[in-house]
Nucleic acid binder design. Structure first.
Lengths: 207, 207
DNA sequence: CGTCGCATTGATATCGCTCAAATCCGGTGG
DNA sequence: CCACCGGATTTGAGCGATATCAATGCGACG
């Protein structure tokens, strides 16, 4: 997916690769739940996993959506228990890396430790960008912000990874609102849409 | 402030403490701006610094508010440039730690590196909790979530650090809305207010 | 072919934002 | 000591953007 993350995963030490266990999960399965003891970090090879919490009324609050190439469970590295739920959203193949091995490596392998650090910084930046986005009040502003921060190139080009419904959740909007907003933005030439490709129009302004 | 952070700051290696420079800033000063080359990490000794970005219309989007005991600039450790603006909100005394020294230490001091890692994880968890909060639609839900995640004890007790106006910004609400919401929650016995102290009422439910 | 989930559109309700104004409070200077 | 000022706090009124509910079409898949 993103460069920092794939760089990290491609250069995993051999000892970690060798210790990885492979798993298959069906839709709806819980890889871990809030409060479960931490035993592994995971990398998605195929499928989709939602890191989420559940509100009082049982509504799902998606904190993150891990797809092919994504690592998850990383915030729990130095914790005893997982802080959220990992729910399989479509049939998923993933690899589990024992957490103890991770901890040992981090204490003894300086290069690996450095890469891990950069990964965390990168995720922190992404999380803060999302906070910044959710603080915007208008739906169109959120879309524009997303394209500018997550899109590639000066025109903020972006190939949507999933459905518009998922995109709406990422933006903190009702999916109906996103449909309407995209339509209006397109009619105002603020964006262009070609299938799953989104791009900013001529008005590519700062921030 | 929070335990993980103060733990970290109290156990800073001597070589870092010795290299720290002290600064005083007046309200409105920019400690660094988006795009400035990274030269230091900062710790607030007194005052308040807002980590923010500016929207198209010049409106301030507060990403974080650093007060006494808080570290900031940390996400830029492995970057060439700062990612946002650090604006002094009230007269501030702070200490600057040269970034190169930080980087050297992280590569050679395993204990320090471990503490740094835990600090980043902790901040990542906090950032994601805030995302979760901003994804809630109702103002009262955001307040409740804040008390449950940031407050202490099972009753979610919380001493507000700043003004209600600042609290409103943290929650992504207009301050008027927050005033009204708090009043209604109090009248419904969902919370109790004693000056700057907030506490959940009897209905202390999960999440 | 039937079902399921996504995409889309319409109608309506609602919550939070905006604008406006009054009060309070702490600090500051005369 | 008092007048004044800026900022926080509060409350009111009205509006508007988004959520919600509802219905339909469409494509994938078994």
């Amino acid at each position: 997916m993103a460069s920092e993350q794939s760089d990290f995963l491609e250069s995993l030490p051999r000892v970690l690769r060798d210790a990885a266990q492979s798993f298959e999960f069906d839709k709806g399965a819980a890889i871990f739940r809030q409060g479960d003891p931490v035993w592994a970090m995971f990398v998605v090879l195929r499928g989709q996993v939602r890191l989420c919490r559940f509100g009082r009324d049982g509504e799902e609050i998606v904190l993150r959506c891990a797809r092919r190439g994504d690592l998850f469970g990383e915030v729990a590295l130095d914790s005893a228990c997982y802080q959220g739920n990992a729910i399989v959203f479509e049939p998923t193949h993933l690899q589990a890396y024992p957490v103890q091995l991770f901890r040992d490596l981090l204490d003894h392998d300086a290069v690996f430790a450095r890469q891990w650090r950069m990964l965390l910084s990168w995720q922190l930046r992404k999380a803060r960008a999302r906070i910044e986005r959710l603080a915007l009040k208008r739906a169109a502003e959120r879309v524009r912000h997303y394209l500018l921060t997550e899109g590639s190139g000066p025109a903020g080009e972006l190939e949507l990874a999933g459905s518009l419904k998922e995109f709406a959740r990422e933006l903190g909007l009702a999916h109906e609102t996103l449909y309407r907003t995209l339509r209006e933005m397109e009619s105002r030439s603020e964006i262009e849409r070609v299938g799953k490709l989104l791009r900013l129009g001529r008005k590519t302004q700062c921030l």
